[in-house]
């Protein structure tokens, strides 16, 4: 699904190297988690994969279903099946949540040469999915993320993910700012999307999200590299001992 090889990335504006050779393969149907201390490069990895400006890839490659994504515009990556759930979803006043989402769904379909979703069909699907995430009609009508609580914003991210039906989902610290109930809702939403054809990369500081979204593989990232890979037990180890030991083994 997602194949990252020897990825080296620096900031475009300054001589600061952030990723120093990341190798990672996420298979279809699998959930991979990346954990690591602040500044280890986790969020940068998610931004570089989804095409945010400000980074320069100096070496390595990243492919999604065999397609090189690093040369694509962000919207092309989205149409190719990549989704990034933002750590800080952006507020867009004056643009209705539903209007925005329908435009996004249809922009992706258009880019893939698929027919657009009719408004009736869209309404039916979004109502169903919103209900599962406890997103009410008012939240759908309101401007994108405006006046949403932290938990509502994250649920809205998952709703977008559910509507866009990406192949590869990257969740960037989706647990930050969530209380226990919201974490459960968000995790249920993510788990509902788990299937054979979809890969997940879950970026988190803490093990607690992984109680809800059970990963198949856990990676520890430190100083721009993946320093350790293991099963779910690795997350528990981090929870117990912190990152200090793992950094030393790097």
């Amino acid at each position: 699904m997602l194949e990252i090889k020897n990825l080296h990335v620096k900031l475009e504006e300054e001589d600061k190297v952030i990723l120093r050779g990341v190798d990672l393969t996420v298979e279809a149907g699998k959930v991979h988690a990346i954990m690591g201390p602040n500044g280890s490069g986790k969020s940068t990895l998610s931004y570089v994969l989804s095409g945010r400006d400000g980074y320069e890839v100096t070496d390595g490659s990243a492919t999604l279903l065999g397609q090189d994504i690093l040369g694509m515009e962000p919207e092309e990556r989205a149409a190719a099946g990549l989704f990034l759930a933002f750590q800080y979803p952006v507020e867009i006043p004056g643009v209705g949540n539903m209007t925005f989402l329908r435009s996004a769904v249809n922009a992706q379909r258009k880019a893939r040469g698929e027919p657009e979703m009719s408004s009736t069909e869209f309404l039916k699907v979004i109502r169903e999915k919103a209900k599962e995430l406890e997103i009410d009609a008012d939240m759908l009508k309101r401007p994108v993320n405006v006046g949403f609580s932290g938990g509502e914003k994250k649920r809205n991210e998952i709703l977008q993910m559910a509507m866009l039906e990406p192949k590869m989902c990257i969740l960037d610290e989706t647990d930050s700012g969530l209380d226990v109930d919201a974490m459960k809702l968000v995790s249920d939403g993510v788990n509902a999307l788990r299937d054979e054809g979809r890969g997940f990369l879950v970026i988190t500081h803490y093990q607690r999200l992984l109680d809800h979204i059970q990963p198949d593989v856990v990676h520890i990232m430190s100083n721009g590299r993946i320093v350790k890979t293991g099963g779910p037990e690795l997350a528990l180890e981090v929870e117990k001992n912190g990152y200090a030991d793992l950094k030393e083994t790097a």
Binding site: R52, A78, A104
Partner: peptide
Amino acid sequence: FYLRARGLPKADATVY
């Protein structure tokens, strides 16, 4: 970037 990451072309995202 947020809007483009959702699949909206840059020009449309600018309109929004």
